[in-house]
Design a protein around this nucleic acid. Structure first.
Length: 337
DNA sequence: AACAAAAACAACCGCTCTCAG
DNA sequence: ACTGAGAGCGGTTGTTTTTGT
């Protein structure tokens, strides 16, 4: 049995709002406020609309100081940076852009910005994606299910990392970094957005003894307050990258497996995800330079998926907000790889 | 000019979270 | 501690506008 509907679906109007409806809603809210109850509001003002619809209309179009269209380059950068950092948390991203709504940014991303960024490399990325698809076909349905756990959003973010890496690593039409978020601004945005400590975020000491108070991010307040407890060794992470892989993409300069392995992975952050979306999960995040090199390599994720096969119960694994790969072990809470 | 396809925009749906009772 | 109503969010769908043929 499902939840009771918030309104009588048969008697509410759907579709575009008329100027008259807009006026009624705007006038009322400006006079009396929403009164803390969106559900009751349409009845009060004689609108045959669902309360949720009224809320959306007000928040996205009628409230003061809303900007529409005409996204600036600076806004593009911020959206891109934050999307790579935290994924599709549109409300958090919108909070960084005064006058913009989550819906607006979401639409802008899906219809324009994403294509602007990812559409340029369809061919080479298609080859990389093909690697995943091929392995889905070749492996068991269980593996296939796990691979499916890599969300579209995560894959997009991987592609963006590829894109940014290429732009930063060689001169080309795409290498005009003024148009794209450099790692510095990305880093800066993460720090600003989540009030992360700059020192703590990237400068985790190689001895893995450092405790970092940055994890528990409240999407509304932006406060971050729990602790990271690094649990991985450099060797354990390097071992993830041990196998040769098929996806070295020399045509577009993405790093091959040997290149990645030669980087070494010395400094890894690990910790709990304590926010409401990811409670109980663990993740690790390579340091900045390794992060850039590792994220584009799907082999890394495949290897980790294989690792999870030996886990009991049903550990989950995903690319996560903030970067890195998240995994869950129902028994111990985390697992050293 | 007419039509189709693609892009852009607006709104809805269903889920989770929060918090008062 | 539990429950349920309302708020908020992100994904998706529907509609309109623009562009290409």
């Amino acid at each position: 049995m499902g939840r009771a509907p918030c309104c009588d679906k048969a008697n509410v109007k759907k579709g575009p709002w008329s100027p008259d409806e807009d006026t009624k809603l705007k006038d009322y809210i400006e006079k009396y406020g929403i009164g803390g109850n969106w559900i009751a509001l349409p009845q009060k003002i004689g609108l045959k609309r669902c309360g949720k619809s009224c809320r959306l209309r007000w928040l996205n179009y009628l409230r003061p100081n809303i900007k529409h269209g005409g996204f600036s380059e600076e806004e593009d950068k911020i959206i891109c940076s934050l999307y790579i950092s935290i994924g599709s948390r549109w409300s958090i991203i919108a909070a960084q852009l005064p006058g913009r709504t989550d819906n607006d940014i979401k639409n802008y991303w899906n219809t324009r910005l994403k294509k602007k960024l990812l559409g340029r490399r369809k061919q080479s990325n298609a080859r990389s994606m093909g690697y995943i698809a091929d392995n889905r076909d070749a492996n068991s349905s269980e593996d296939s299910d796990r691979l499916s756990a890599l969300s579209n959003s995560a894959i997009e973010r991987l592609q963006l990392h590829l894109q940014l890496q290429r732009m930063n690593s060689h001169s080309s039409f795409y290498s005009n970094t003024a148009l794209w978020p450099s790692m510095h601004s990305l880093h800066e945005n993460m720090v600003n957005t989540f009030q992360l400590s700059d020192e703590n975020l990237w400068n985790c000491r190689p001895d893995h003894q450092v405790q970092i108070d940055t994890a528990n991010i409240d999407p509304h307040s932006g406060n971050a307050s729990s602790s990271y407890e690094p649990v991985m060794t450099a060797d354990s992470i390097t071992s993830l990258l041990h196998e040769p892989t098929k996806i070295s993409d020399s045509a577009d300069n993405s790093p091959g497996p040997q290149e990645i392995m030669s980087l070494g992975v010395e400094q890894i952050l690990c910790g709990d995800y304590n926010d409401s979306q990811t409670a109980g999960h663990k993740y690790f995040m390579p340091q900045e330079n390794q992060y850039h090199q590792m994220m584009p390599d799907f082999h890394c994720f495949r290897r980790m998926l294989e690792e999870t096969n030996s886990w009991d119960d049903s550990p989950s694994l995903d690319i996560v907000e903030g970067g890195g790969v998240m995994f869950q072990d129902s028994e111990t809470g985390y697992r050293n790889l």
